[in-house]
Write a protein that binds this DNA or RNA. Structure first.
Length: 469
RNA sequence: GCGAAUGUAGCUCAGUUGGUUAGAGCGCUGGUUUGUGGUACCGGAGGUCGUGGGUUCAAGACCCAUCGUUCGCCCCA
């Protein structure tokens, strides 16, 4: 934040310099700084995401950071558009929003090339978004998420694929089945339940949907009282009984007969059969799962952290068949999901799944005596051979140079002094093991490259990012 | 947007009923040490006590406002 920048002093450089000194070093509210050690974590997560979705044949795309505001107005929900978008009017009087989500953009892109895109289209993207809302644990104003979507494929199989991918992603981070559950529901089941089974009108149905959404957050008595309010006095008793019956159902088989026989429930059953075949073990049907977005039309799901200290939704997704058609194209089946970076980091931290990271620099060169010119040549030769080398240019004492390298978490130290230059044999030290040996440059190169393929594990969990390239 | 807690060194925190020049541990940095991470000892830097007002002879402390952070509500892609 700028404190009292005195613009009237524009001609006086000394005063401006003084006012510049009072700039705050804090980042913008709800947006954090990413230091090198933070970027190691972020890069790791992005790489795991990419590796998994690419293994399912998904290709990456991107869309503009800005979209016309009305792109979000149609289907994203009023709250998101009116209160949570960063928006402005550009110089051509266009209403513009910084993207708060990716789904409308990717639907727009698909719609624009509806005819020529080979279907099913499997696309993914890792991008940055902004939403104007109150920051709290797990939620920031600026955030990153992976978006994965499959277009042009109806039925339960693309839904099973998407959910399996979510499952695989968590497993790729080292998660076990008991660390999370996958809650699954279907918008058509919800609609059928509200309209036919409970006999609610549109207004009542919307209120009841919100109430179901809150069910796990509020006391049972509060839930009952609010349900009575929605039903109205004369219908309350019968209505409560029906809801009790719904909530008692442990599986789809326990559901009241009129719901069980609906087309919507058969869709859900089909999905569960396929999930089982795909080896997804912890998916459960949850009739209280609603999800807020207006654009979902069928299956909805949510990955939920079971850890008591992080009991919250990790990410979710579902089927949104109406979106592509909004952009003037023939309607198209669409299923997607979007894990966020912040929630993933919290999940990994909570369950102790984050590896320790080393620098992307392979070698820190410690220069001794008056050998800088020769040392720089050696460093360059290593670089020509694909080794990432940082040279200590300070000519400080050896222990200072060494400490710097250790602090930067660089795997290898290479000592270059008079002896080494003369003998063309360099002292290479593995920081993790402490082992130190004199090697020719060729051996230095091969040793470092071998280490990349098989990182030494003896400092617990050193994790080499080149693993994931 | 609403409610609550909180803000003192890079980090974790202490600071008495308001009373001299605001402290500790860790970290950082220089040395003992002219080629290897440790330990020990000796030195050093670093704070307008989040910010702005107010009360007072006197404010890190009390009051008001404001900003940030955290937790909950709302909302949740």
């Amino acid at each position: 934040m700028i404190k009292r920048l005195r613009l009237q002093d524009r001609g006086n450089s000394a005063k401006i310099a003084i006012s510049m000194a009072s700039l705050s070093s804090e980042s913008y509210k709800g947006a954090r700084d990413w230091y090198p050690e933070d970027m190691r974590v972020r890069d790791y997560i992005f790489r795991v995401w990419r590796r998994v979705v690419k293994s399912y044949g998904y290709e990456t795309y991107d869309a503009p950071l800005l979209e016309p505001l009305e792109v979000y107005a149609a289907k994203s929900g009023q709250e998101l558009v009116n209160e949570q978008t960063y928006q402005f009017t550009d110089r051509g009087d266009r209403r513009v929003a910084i993207r708060p989500e990716m789904t409308p953009s990717v639907s727009r892109m698909i719609a624009a090339r509806r005819q020529e895109t080979p279907m099913p289209a499997r696309w993914y993207n890792i991008a940055q978004f902004m939403r104007y809302e109150r920051p709290q644990r797990g939620r920031e104003r600026e955030f990153w998420q992976l978006n994965v979507d499959i277009f042009g494929c109806s039925g339960a199989s693309p839904e099973a694929e998407i959910i399996s991918m979510g499952d695989r992603i968590l497993k790729a981070f080292g998660a076990k089945d008991d660390m999370y559950v996958i809650r699954v529901n279907n918008r058509k089941v919800i609609n059928f339940m509200m309209a036919h089974y409970l006999g609610l009108d549109a207004v009542q149905a919307q209120l009841m949907t919100k109430l179901f959404d809150r069910k796990n957050k509020i006391a049972p008595e509060a839930f009952r009282d609010q349900a009575v309010d929605i039903f109205g006095a004369d219908q309350a008793k019968a209505g409560l009984q029906k809801i009790a019956q719904l909530l008692a159902a442990k599986s789809m088989g326990d559901l009241p007969e009129s719901i069980r026989d609906s087309e919507a429930v058969r869709e859900v059953q089909d999905l569960f059969t396929q999930l089982e075949r795909a080896g997804v073990k912890n998916a459960t049907f949850d009739i209280t799962l609603m999800r807020g977005l207006d654009y979902y039309t069928g299956t909805v799901f949510e990955f939920f952290d079971t850890h008591p200290e992080n009991n919250r939704a990790l990410f979710g997704g579902g089927r949104y068949d109406g979106m592509v058609g909004l952009f003037g194209a023939e309607p198209l089946s669409a299923v997607g999901f979007a894990p966020g970076l912040t929630m993933t980091m919290l999940f990994l931290e909570t369950h102790g799944l984050l590896p320790k990271f080393r620098s992307t620099t392979d070698v820190y060169m410690i220069v001794l005596g008056d050998t800088m010119r020769s040392a720089l040549k050696v460093a360059d030769e290593l670089r020509q051979n694909g080794i990432n080398v940082e040279v200590d240019l300070t000519e400080r004492k050896i222990d200072k140079q060494l400490k710097t390298a250790v602090k930067k978490q660089i795997s290898y130290l290479l000592f270059v002094g008079d002896d080494e230059i003369k003998s063309e044999s360099y002292s290479l030290k593995n920081v993790a093991t402490g082992a130190d040996e004199k090697l020719s440059l060729e051996r230095v190169i091969s040793t470092v490259k071998d280490h990349r393929k098989n990182p030494v594990k003896d400092d617990d969990s050193a994790f080499d990012l080149s693993d994931l390239k």
